[in-house]
């Protein structure tokens, strides 16, 4: 049989008539429930915003003057930074205390969370145990770190002990969720294969689970370390845990030294950027390895 001729081209466009027909179709966009809901809530939000601005009690603050003064303060803070109540070396030492607080709580949290994460992962633990642990850590996670520190301050007194316990507590709950979810993503085939060969639970954990999820474990732990650094700064001020946060609290609440606040902010910013660069590099290395 002879092959058929070349594939037929698309029919030539019918011109204006077709365009009009399609435009008409396009204009008949179906009016769904969700689009009504979105429009209604946008409208309500707009009305509330206008009402709120018109009903503010501004007291004697004049918007323009206040704005100028704020900018002036920011200028003092960031363009004329200086250290007055302590030296550069001391500041560096204080930053290292804050870093130490973050490091300690992350390590404590990671070790305990690794164990709990294994018990919370649905694929390698029993169902009820997994549900109980997951529920418990969700509850702990729902309360902010600062509150946990203040709660533990009742027993330990305001200071570094309460900060360490409280921050560890929240780190555990955060990391248990992160770890157990990465464990659950592991291909269950390899676990099955080792079960079938007579390996026990601990052997499966260390020969399958940990090797398969090590990159996730490291990147989540580092992520928590970054969070803990920020929290440790706040804890220095809020819970008297020491470190650069406490100096910042003194500079702002005690000496009203805007320039010093600026200098300390730069310190924290530089450390945070360094951590970020370090974290990105680790992640890139891990990605290359996998």
């Amino acid at each position: 049989m002879q092959a058929e001729g070349p594939i037929k081209p698309f029919p030539a466009p019918a011109g204006q008539d077709l365009d009009n027909m399609l435009l008409e179709r396009l204009s008949k966009k179906p009016f769904s429930k969700s689009s009504i809901a979105i429009r209604m809530s946008m409208l309500v939000l707009a009305v509330l915003t206008i009402y709120a601005f018109s009903s503010f009690d501004y007291k004697d603050v004049k918007l323009w003057d206040a704005l100028i003064l704020t900018i002036d303060n920011l200028k003092t803070m960031f363009f004329e930074p200086h250290l007055k109540h302590f030296t550069f070396t001391q500041a560096l030492y204080q930053v290292s205390i804050t870093l130490g607080l973050a490091f300690l709580t992350t390590i404590f949290g990671a070790i305990i969370a690794l164990m709990l994460g294994l018990l919370a992962a649905g694929n390698i633990s029993s169902k009820p145990l997994s549900v109980i642990i997951k529920g418990l850590v969700a509850l702990i996670r729902a309360v902010p770190t600062v509150l946990w520190v203040l709660i533990f301050a009742v027993a330990a007194g305001l200071g570094s002990v309460a900060a360490v316990i409280g921050m560890t507590f929240h780190s555990i709950s955060y990391l248990v969720k992160a770890y157990s979810e990465s464990f659950e993503e592991i291909d269950k085939g390899a676990i099955e294969a080792l079960q079938a060969s007579g390996a026990n639970w601990w052997q499966i954990v260390f020969q399958v689970i940990i090797p398969s999820s090590i990159t996730y474990i490291i990147s989540w732990t580092f992520m928590r370390f970054e969070i803990n650094f920020a929290v440790a700064v706040a804890m220095g001020a809020a819970a008297g845990a020491g470190g650069i946060g406490f100096d910042m609290f003194m500079a702002s609440g005690f000496y009203f030294d805007l320039s010093e606040i600026g200098a300390i902010t730069y310190f924290i910013l530089i450390i945070a950027i360094c951590l970020e660069i370090f974290a990105t590099q680790i992640k890139r290395k891990l990605k290359e390895a996998s």
């Binding site: 291909d187 085939g189 390899a190 099955e192 294969a193 080792l194 060969s197 007579g198 390996a199 026990n200 601990w202 052997q203 954990v205 260390f206 020969q207 399958v208 090797p211 398969s212 090590i214 996998s290």
Partner: peptide, 27 residues
């Protein structure tokens, strides 16, 4: 196949021995 992808060929093959080993040696 159900191998542990991140481990080497011989490590995967040796997994067959785990049933004969003590927990610690296996870990």
């Amino acid at each position: 196949y159900n191998l542990v992808n991140r481990l080497s060929v011989i490590e995967n093959a040796l997994h067959g021995r785990l049933g004969y080993k003590s927990t610690l040696a296996g870990i």
